[in-house]
């Protein structure tokens, strides 16, 4: 049980009595952080729902400026990465170090694919000037896209272009804030997963101690949770 005359196993920090106490403290800390993340994103979701109820026609139009196929691909990619993150935890708990490394690597690859798809979506928006706030300055191609989306939308089929520009700008602004904030979370997640994967390769984790794998997976699942809502909210408006 105790590998040290003074204290328990090597992974047990000196201010904890027992591994289970250290583990419970870490888990409570992580859940507190995740609760904070929900509140952090809540401003985006409340703004989204209020603006959607105020400008349903602009939201219907704005959603058609996005490609639902891209969003669907990214949803599947993130779901797979959540599965591999869960598998990384299970294998770490069984002490299957190499499998944990593989699952963490697949999670990283999925995160990379997600960001590449996002890059293509963003770069097109940059190209046609569909940008948030004061940067909103559609090119001719951008206005043509807005007109095509309007013709296909509910409530703005016959509206002249100038009348809906401001509300489309609100939608684009929220799209960039929501998916941008989420994208930053994906990038941070990739960094932390890489760090945990390196520690795993170095052999820091055993079937007795795998808390960092567990915590990074929890964070990654939260990133997935946010996207589960962002996807239909942004891409799938009737």
């Amino acid at each position: 049980m105790a590998t040290d005359a003074h204290h328990g196993p090597e992974f047990l920090a000196h201010h904890f009595d027992r591994p289970v106490q250290q583990f419970d403290a870490a888990k409570l800390g992580m859940w507190t952080f995740l609760a904070q993340e929900i509140l952090f994103f809540s401003g985006i979701f409340v703004a989204y729902l209020l603006f959607r109820s105020w400008y349903p026609e602009a939201w219907s139009l704005g959603s058609r400026l996005l490609d639902w196929r891209m969003g669907t691909i990214n949803t599947f990619v993130l779901l797979i990465s959540s599965f591999t993150a869960a598998q990384a935890v299970a294998t770490a708990q069984r002490g299957e170090r190499n499998k944990t490394t593989v699952y963490l690597a697949i999670t990283l690859i999925c995160a990379g694919i997600f960001m590449v798809v996002k890059y293509f979506e963003y770069s097109h928006k940059f190209h046609v000037g569909l940008l948030p706030g004061s940067l909103f300055n559609p090119t001719e191609e951008g206005w043509a896209e807005i007109a095509a989306a309007a013709a296909n939308s509910h409530g703005m089929e016959s509206a002249p272009a100038g009348t809906y520009a401001n509300h489309v700008r609100s939608y684009i602004g929220l799209y960039f804030m929501a998916t941008g904030l989420h994208g930053i979370h994906v990038l941070i997640g990739m960094g932390v997963i890489t760090w945990v994967m390196i520690r795993n390769i170095k052999g820091e984790f055993t079937s007795e101690f795998w808390t960092p794998v567990d915590l990074v997976a929890l964070y990654w699942h939260l990133v997935d949770l946010i996207w589960i809502y962002l996807f239909p909210f942004m891409y799938l408006i009737d």
């Binding site: 419970d24 888990k27 409570l28 859940w31 507190t32 995740l34 609760a35 904070q36 929900i38 509140l39 809540s42 401003g43 979701f45 409340v46 729902l49 959540s82 599965f83 993150a85 869960a86 997976a217 929890l218 699942h221 997935d224 949770l225 589960i228």
Partner: peptide, 30 residues
């Protein structure tokens, strides 16, 4: 995702309460 991947099914009730509490505050905000 919460129940199975995040192990809320097996999580301590206090942690679950903590997490779900944040959803309550989101609903109050909204």
């Amino acid at each position: 995702v919460c129940y199975y991947f995040m192990h809320l099914k097996y999580e301590k009730a206090f942690n679950t309460l903590f997490f779900l509490g944040s959803l309550l505050f989101l609903l109050i905000f909204l």
